[in-house]
């Protein structure tokens, strides 16, 4: 059966793409963020995943308000990045794994997660930049991919408890796939930030650090909060932490922290990085 080697959660911000394109990794503004990644690169070189299941939210590239799925799973041979409107360089396409996609789709629906399936799917910065950070400069990306998109744009959003269960169902799906593939699960977004309104610029370091700490060994801690409470605690976009929680849900058994990093700010965001290994 396929093996989940672990999970990595990381912030996504469009301007990371510009920083990479302009080689600003050692620039004083960006250094505290980019310096978080070498230990993750070393861990990935050790655990050698073949496939990444990437849990993220779309920001208006593939999905619009005309049709807004709560959960969507990609089932394409290839996923293209495209212009999001900001002139940040578009990255080359990512290779899919349709066998795993359809196995996950079958298993998730069987387990009562009635997801939307996408045989064509554009992937935005929330999908591409984490892969670029984990496998810098490697084109095509050396792992095959399955995108899993969660609505964090239009309320109501799925509850934290639902996202954790969705992650558990993703984990069971992967681990019941009859191959010897090695899979890393990635969750992207957060941590605390708010782009809009009179509370723009809101950041909550205390909550973020607690969340990162609890996520490793007590992930259900955050399910005590409703989605509006999470918005109050982490900001309107901080609620993207639901993607982190879904990723954590996919990890079962003994989970240990490999590496973490936290830095404020990049753009308007408290940036977080958390790699976890499954025994």
């Amino acid at each position: 059966m396929a093996k989940i080697v672990g999970g990595i959660n990381v912030t996504h911000v469009p301007y990371i793409g510009r920083a990479i394109a302009n080689n600003l990794q050692q620039d004083p503004y960006w250094k505290p963020f980019f310096d978080g990644f070498p230990p993750v690169h070393q861990w990935l070189a050790k655990v050698k995943p073949d496939i990444a299941v990437v849990i993220y939210n779309d920001h208006g590239l593939n999905f619009f308000l005309d049709k807004m799925p709560t959960f969507a799973v990609g089932a394409a041979a290839e996923y293209s990045n495209a212009d999001e409107g900001w002139g940040i360089p578009t990255l080359p396409p990512y290779i899919g794994d349709q066998d795993l996609s359809w196995h996950m789709i079958d298993s998730l629906v069987e387990n009562e997660f009635d997801i939307v399936t996408c045989q064509e799917m554009l992937v935005d910065h929330a999908f591409t930049l984490p892969l670029e950070l984990f496998w810098p400069g490697q084109h095509p990306c050396p792992v095959r991919t399955v995108p899993v998109c969660i609505n964090t744009v239009q309320f109501p959003l799925p509850t934290a408890a639902r996202c954790f269960k969705f992650g558990q169902a993703i984990g069971r799906a992967i681990e019941s796939w009859d191959t010897d593939a090695r899979v890393v699960v990635i969750g992207t977004g957060g941590l605390s930030h708010q782009l809009e309104g009179r509370r723009a610029g809101f950041i909550n370091k205390e909550f973020d650090l607690m969340f990162m700490d609890k996520l490793v060994n007590d992930p259900l801690w955050v399910t005590r909060y409703s989605v509006p409470e999470l918005v109050e605690l982490t900001g309107t976009q901080g609620v993207e932490l639901l993607n982190w929680l879904t990723c954590r849900g996919a990890l079962s058994g003994d989970v240990t922290k490999v590496h973490g990093n936290y830095h404020i700010p990049i753009s308007n965001t408290a940036s977080g990085l958390l790699a976890m290994e499954v025994a």
């Binding site: 744009v153 239009q154 309320f155 109501p156 708010q194 309104g197 009179r198 509370r199 723009a200 809101f202 409703s226 509006p228 409470e229 918005v231 109050e232 309107t236």
Partner: peptide, 10 residues
């Protein structure tokens, strides 16, 4: 729920 300076996009 009323969150100061914030409107949920519902």
């Amino acid at each position: 729920r009323v969150i100061p300076g914030t409107t949920l996009f519902d």
